[in-house]
Amino acid sequence: MSYDEFYVKSVIRTLPDWPEPGVMFRDITPIFKEPKALRMVADAFIQRYMDADVSHIACIDARGFLIASIMAYQMQKPLVLVRKKGKLPGETIHEEYKLEYGTSAVEMQKDAVAAGDRVLVFDDLIATGGTILAACTLIKKLGAEVVECAALIDLPDLNGSMRIQDAGFPVYTMLAYEGL
Rank of each mutant, 00 (worst) to 15 (best):
M71A: 01
L142Y: 05
D111T: 03
L142W: 04
P30M: 00
I57C: 02
A144I: 01
F45K: 11
A37F: 12
N159Y: 08
T103F: 07
T173P: 15
I57L: 00
L81G: 04
S2E: 03
P16N: 03
A58V: 05
E20D: 06
W18E: 01
I28D: 02
V119W: 11
A127V: 08
Y7T: 03
E34A: 02
M174D: 04
V106N: 13
G22S: 03
S10P: 15
L66R: 12
Q47N: 13
E107I: 08
D166P: 15
D154M: 11
T14M: 10
M108E: 06
K33G: 03
I153W: 02
M1P: 14
F65A: 00
G22P: 15
A144N: 05
D17V: 01
M1A: 07
M71E: 02
D154N: 14
Y101F: 08
I46P: 15
P156G: 01
D111W: 09
G129D: 00
E107K: 12
R39L: 09
H56K: 14
D166W: 08
Y7E: 05
G102H: 05
A127E: 05
Y177W: 02
G179P: 15
D123W: 08
D61G: 03
R83P: 15
I28C: 00
M71K: 12
P170D: 00
K141H: 13
A52N: 07
L79G: 09
A42Y: 03
E91C: 10
T103Q: 10
D43L: 12
A115K: 15
D123P: 15
M71S: 08
Y49E: 00
R118S: 00
T29N: 06
K85I: 13
G129A: 00
D27H: 13
S10C: 11
C59F: 11
K33V: 02
M162F: 14
L99G: 13
F65M: 04
V54E: 01
Y73V: 12
I60Y: 06
I31K: 14
A105E: 03
I12S: 05
L155M: 05
E34Y: 06
D124N: 01
A151N: 10
F6M: 11
A72I: 10
T131K: 11
V119Y: 11
P170I: 01
F45A: 01
V113N: 09
L152R: 03
S2L: 08
L15Y: 07
S69V: 12
P30E: 00
M108H: 09
L88R: 13
M50G: 05
F122R: 15
G86I: 04
A144Q: 07
G102P: 15
A134W: 14
A134T: 11
G130W: 09
A134N: 13
Y97V: 04
K36A: 12
D124K: 05
V106H: 11
S2D: 04
E100T: 12
S161Q: 14
D51V: 14
G129E: 01
D43G: 05
A150E: 02
K77Q: 08
D124S: 06
R63V: 09
T128K: 15
I60V: 05
I67W: 02
S55Q: 04
E95T: 06
A37S: 07
F6I: 12
L38H: 12
M71V: 01
V113L: 06
N159D: 09
A62Q: 07
